[in-house]
């Protein structure tokens, strides 16, 4: 596939967004949801994740490397588009535009979120219920987290739709309409999980 750098890069970008980054997003949101069962349940769940064997390998190959690739190549994709929703205000064109906006918001949110939690943990802080409680006590941070989490979920759900088109899974217009509804359902369901977890800390 020597001459097909761009083809390979694009396909890889689309795949990594779903596997492993999208799968990790779902897992992260589900673990967060333990917060609704109280402080102890959340702390033991997060402690379980922290003490998984091969933790650093898992973090590097399942989270950080795929995420970095997806983010950097995604920024390049987002900024080569010339958005024209004012002229062509079709549903899919709006999704195209919002996909790029939420991608950038998600990246900004993640940089902050990783700094505030994972990097602080590496520097000796204890990542637990209380830490999140302290962060989200600030109304500005609460709003930032809600926007960040919803952006990430939207970007994943709509990205799943375009993943299915880009890999040739949904070809016919009808299959693309059905997958629009399915991914919309995924967006709503995961948003409930994510928002419930956030408000469990407030």
């Amino acid at each position: 596939m020597a001459g097909n750098r761009e083809f390979f890069n694009r396909k890889l970008h689309s795949l990594l967004g779903v596997i492993p980054v999208g799968v990790f997003l779902i897992q992260h949101l589900v673990v967060n949801h333990f917060a609704t069962r109280g402080e102890e349940a959340f702390n033991s769940a997060s402690h379980f994740m922290e003490s998984l064997p091969f933790r650093y390998l898992l973090e590097i190959f399942v989270i950080f490397l795929p995420l970095l690739y997806h983010a950097i190549y995604g920024l390049y994709i987002a900024f080569t588009a010339k958005n024209n929703t004012s002229k062509y205000s079709y549903f899919r064109n709006w999704m195209f535009y919002i996909q790029r906006i939420t991608g950038v918001i998600t990246l900004i949110f993640l940089v902050w979120h990783v700094w505030e939690t994972r990097i602080q943990a590496a520097m000796g802080a204890d990542v637990n219920f209380q830490m999140m409680e302290n962060i989200l006590a600030n109304p500005f941070m609460l709003a930032f987290y809600i926007i960040g989490v919803l952006s990430a979920i939207f970007h994943f759900a709509n990205g799943l739709w375009s993943f299915m088109v880009s890999w040739g899974i949904t070809v016919s217009p009808r299959s693309q309409v059905i997958s629009t509804y399915v991914t919309l359902g995924i967006f709503v369901a995961l948003s409930i999980v994510g928002i419930r977890a956030i408000f469990a800390f407030v």
Binding site: Y88, R92, N93, Y97
Partner: peptide, 25 residues
Amino acid sequence: GNSQNCVQSCPKGIPLTTSIAALNR
């Protein structure tokens, strides 16, 4: 990037996005 403006704009009603998805496969 699947904005699908093409299929909305084509004066001949050609199923351009179906062509693109089929070629993706």
